[in-house]
């Protein structure tokens, strides 16, 4: 009946963080995260500098690698998981991601649209007038 059910603070690894024995497993988690982050970072720099890849696809590949690395940081360093004690943290994060997506994608779409419907420069207008 008296099950301890508290929400978990962001950054906490588990309910056992105050337990002294949690240190070794915590070290393992941070080390796995560090290794994954190093691999993803190295992959990003390789993708950006190599001449082997199809150039127009590089920005998309970089974006995928960056999002993957952010996920690694969130899970392994900030310890945001999908556990039932973590719902509040995940919901706040989801709201933040929503706002960030709206701001960045919205700005890019609107500005590209405005640029597209700008009047062409003067010399182009002249050419259109001539013909």
């Amino acid at each position: 009946m008296t099950t301890e059910h508290f929400d978990r603070a962001p950054g906490d690894q588990s309910m056992l963080t105050d337990n002294e024995e949690a240190t070794s497993s915590g070290l393992l988690i941070y080390s796995i995260g560090m290794m994954l982050a190093v691999v993803l970072t190295a992959a990003s720099f390789w993708v950006a500098t190599t001449p082997l890849l199809w150039a127009p696809g590089i920005p998309l590949g970089l974006a995928v690698l960056a999002i993957a690395q952010m996920g690694v940081h969130v899970v392994f360093f900030l310890h945001i998981t999908t556990g039932p004690d973590n719902t509040n943290n995940v919901l706040a994060l989801a709201f933040g991601v929503l706002i960030v997506t709206l701001v960045v994608a919205g700005s890019l779409v609107i500005m590209a649209n405005l640029n597209g419907s700008m009047m062409p420069p003067a010399e182009l207008m002249d050419m259109q007038m001539k013909y």
Binding site: V47, A48, L62, L65, A66, Q69, H73
Partner: peptide
Amino acid sequence: HALDIIWVGLFTVVYLMGVAA
């Protein structure tokens, strides 16, 4: 840790995409 997450986005968008594109 949050600053490091921002830096991931930053070096990707600013530096890597800036050099690649």
